[in-house]
Design a protein around this nucleic acid. Sequence first.
DNA 1: GCGACAG
DNA 2: ATCTTGTCGC
Length: 222
Amino acid sequence: MDMQALRAEQLARAKDVIRHDDFDCLPPRLIAGADVGFEQQGEVTRAALVILEYPSLKLIEHKVARIATTMPYIPGFLSFREYPALLTAWQMLEHQPDLLFVDGHGISHTRRLGVASHFGLLVDVPTIGVAKSRLCGKFEPLDDQPGARQPLMDKGEQLGWVWRSKNRCNPLFVATGHRISNDTALQWVENCMAGYRLPEPTRWADAVASGRPAFLRWQQQG
DNA sequence: GCGACAG
DNA sequence: ATCTTGTCGC
């Protein structure tokens, strides 16, 4: 693969990312969560999309797509590996979400185009990037109490927020994906918490993508 | 040159 | 990401 071409594509697409609030429906009635996993030693890419109702945060739809993996994991180029499967799952959805949570960075990316921004642009829906570890940028140490936050800075600009969602847990990296500001993104992540480290849309997408106990229980009942 | 490096 | 059980601490 031509890394220089992919790098150029990232720089070009990053210019189209909208970093301010641009909602069609506020407050959002349906919120989606997206996550990607792998099977068969990485040969198969598995994308999960879930739809939650707001403010109940109840799961009302879930879809899983499996396609052949086309690219290896290379830091900084994650979106090219994951978006094909995500798009496939997206086309299976019966509901259209007003807001989307993607597991991974948004503009908090070396070239400002993490998977949340790339996928958000493709589906053109307000999108938030929620990552579990740092890719780039610097931040001051966080206080211990939940709710503590620090701006994630890189080259003089704020790329997002480092936010402690839960006591004794590592912080989350929340940032603009597309059509939402960093501040509003963090606000909606806060609105979607239910006592766990991850916000509900991300947590459910992860549970569905990985066949976790919580999802299996839900599937038996419903 | 060296270290860092989402999922 | 994935391979995988118990275990320590609140």
